[in-house]
Structure formats: structure tokens, C-alpha cells
Design a binder for these strands. Structure first.
Lengths: 172, 172
DNA sequence: CGATTTTTAGACCGATCTGTCTGATAGTCT
DNA sequence: AGACTATCAGACAGATCGGTCTAAAAATCG
């Protein structure tokens, strides 16, 4: 519900009704709504990383691993009810320092690190630049899929990513 | 305030206090908060289109006009307090059919139409494909700038856009 | 079994939300 | 001047918000 309707829009009462649980139980297990939202976002983060790892499984070539990230995204986008990046959405109306902002930062940093590490592993002369370009394409695919419900956005992004990877100079 | 703090976060009372206006006056001029939000988003839409038009001013070549869109974006991103696309942010926690959703659709449709029209004007064999790629890069630049505060995202996107434009087949 | 933990339904709290209403005041027209 | 339009400050309403509390029931565990 937080994902499909928005963190602000969904109140505690809606949550307990949907979960079929007493209000007291919720606050017995979570210190407050912030805590609940943090748990929601942590779950999202974990599942997203798992999905990427699953699509990278068995691949040796770091370039293929980079491209597999787009395959993982493609799976997510194709899922019914896709509404874009949960972290970006939650952050859109959250204040700096909020749990939403922290969750966003956690994922973004992980993504940037992952792209950079794979770029280095692949031997790109300017791995940071390659990582930045891929990150841009990733974000573009996410946003475009959400805002225009364009089914080909991810495929297009992967295509452009291939182009970037093929045209960037490597030491090896 | 709607832009920097979020539509849901900012209440009527905050608005009238900041505007130095009486509550009655606000509801005398606007039928409700939705109406106020709609006006806010319409203003954003107008200013964004104006900014793009300004950057395209004097240019004849449709390809240069396409690239000028990224220049306009660059100006917006560089402005202090940039927090991404106002429509996307407002829509992140809005329900389908809301004024936020309508405003988003209006701008997105305009952007898609504009890209397609310029692509056709430039004589691309597959103008729809070119427009889709540019849209993807545009969205990527917006999202990346917002989520990572990456100052070079727009420049990078324009560079990739140039690559796309140069490598796409044209009839003329 | 007894002791402890967890869940239950729902009343209740104070704060905040959008929106209304009042009655006076000010500005703008002909 | 007179009629109309707009603004004012702020009390008020009804709903909803996150969160607390109670007292009983249920589940868990040594």
C-alpha cells in the first residue's frame, strides 16, 4: 500500500485494517509509523538487490553483469502495478533527514558503488564516467517507464548501455 | 513551498502564513487546495515550456532545437533548490485522476509530441525511436540530478543525445 | 503447569487537516 | 455617493492524523 498509494496517503488505520491486525499490535512491534516505513523500504531494498543478483547469477563477464542490471529492472517494470522507484517516490514528499531520505541514499550509494566496481573490473579507462552513463540510463529507464508507461524504455536503455559499453575505451 | 517541501506536506495554513493573506481570501480565489495545486502546476508547466522555447530561440536546425532542450534542463537543474520534476514529485503520492496526475500527463504528452515533431522535422527514418531515446535521456538526466545531485548528469545526457542523433539514420 | 509475551478491540487523546462562516474593513467601480 | 467586490482576522466544524491506554484473551515456553 505504501508503494502503490504513497507513504503519506496511507494512514495507520488503513494499514491495520488491511493487515487485519490490532492497532496495539502494530505499535507493539514498531515504534511508530517512521519505523514501519523504514521496514517497508528496507524490504524493498533487499528484494531489489536480490533481483539484480539473481539476474547476474552465473555470469562471469563484468560487462554482462552490468547489462544484467537492466534485465532485473525489466522484470520489475513488467510486474503489475509498477509505479517507479519506491525510494524516489517516498522521497518526493519527504523532508531531508527522514527515514525515506536515508533509505534512498543507501540504495543509491550501493548502486553507484556496484556500477563503478563492475566498470573497474571490466577494465574501462574511465570507469567513473562509464558508471555515470549507465546510472543515467538506469534512471532514465525507471522514470520513463513510470511516467509514460512506455513498455520499451528498459529495452531501449539496455541497448544504449550496450552502445556505451562498446564505445568506451578499455585497458584490457 | 509545494515544490520544495511537497504538496502533501505543506498545508493551507502554511500557505496563507507565507503568503501573508487571510484564509478567506485564499478560498475566495481558489475553490480548494486542489485548485491551488493545479494553479501551481500550471505555472510550472508554463515556465518550463517558456524556458525551453527561450533556449531554442534563434535556432533553425531541428537537431539543435532538440539539443537545446537539454540546455534548458541544465539551467533548471543548476538553479538553487532544484528537487527534480515538480510533476513527477507531485504525482509520486497522488492518486490516479488527481489534478497532479492530469498536470503530469499534460506536460509529458507535450514533451513527447515536441520530441517527435522535431525528430520528424529532422528527417529521421524512425523519428518515434529517436524521440523515445531522447526522452529516456531527458528523464535520466532529471532523475539522476535529483537523486544523486550529480552536476554533470545533464551534460552527460546531452552528450549521449548527440551520439543518438548522429548515429540515427535520416532520409535527408 | 505457571510465567511471560503477544495480540485483541476499541475508546480515547491532542494535533492537524481542509474548508466554512461571520462581520467588519477596505478598494474599486459608475 | 452608492453599489459592488475583495480582503481581513480568526473562530469554528468535522474528519483524519499518529499514537496511547486498558483490560481481557490468546499464544508461547521452560
Amino acid at each position: 500500500m505504501f508503494y502503490s498509494e504513497g507513504v503519506h496517503t496511507v494512514g495507520i488505520d488503513k494499514v491495520i485494517k488491511e493487515a487485519g491486525v490490532a492497532k496495539g499490535s502494530l505499535f507493539y512491534n514498531f515504534s511508530g509509523k517512521d519505523d514501519l516505513v523504514a521496514a517497508y523500504l528496507e524490504g524493498r531494498d533487499q528484494r531489489r538487490r536480490d533481483r539484480i543478483a539473481r539476474h547476474q547469477q552465473g555470469l562471469k563477464d563484468p560487462i554482462e553483469k552490468l547489462l544484467a542490471i537492466f534485465d532485473a529492472l525489466n522484470e520489475a517494470v513488467a510486474a503489475p502495478g509498477y509505479r517507479g522507484c519506491a525510494f524516489a517516490n517516498a522521497n518526493a514528499e519527504a523532508l531531508p533527514g527522514s527515514v525515506e531520505a536515508k533509505a534512498l541514499r543507501t540504495f543509491r550509494d550501493w548502486l553507484a558503488d556496484t556500477l563503478l566496481a563492475l566498470g573497474k573490473e571490466a577494465g574501462f579507462t574511465d570507469a567513473a564516467d562509464v558508471a555515470a552513463r549507465l546510472g543515467l540510463l538506469y534512471d532514465g529507464a525507471v522514470a520513463n517507464s513510470q511516467l509514460d508507461t512506455h513498455p520499451d524504455a528498459v529495452r531501449l536503455a539496455k541497448e544504449l548501455a550496450s552502445m556505451v559499453l562498446n564505445s568506451s575505451p578499455r585497458t584490457t
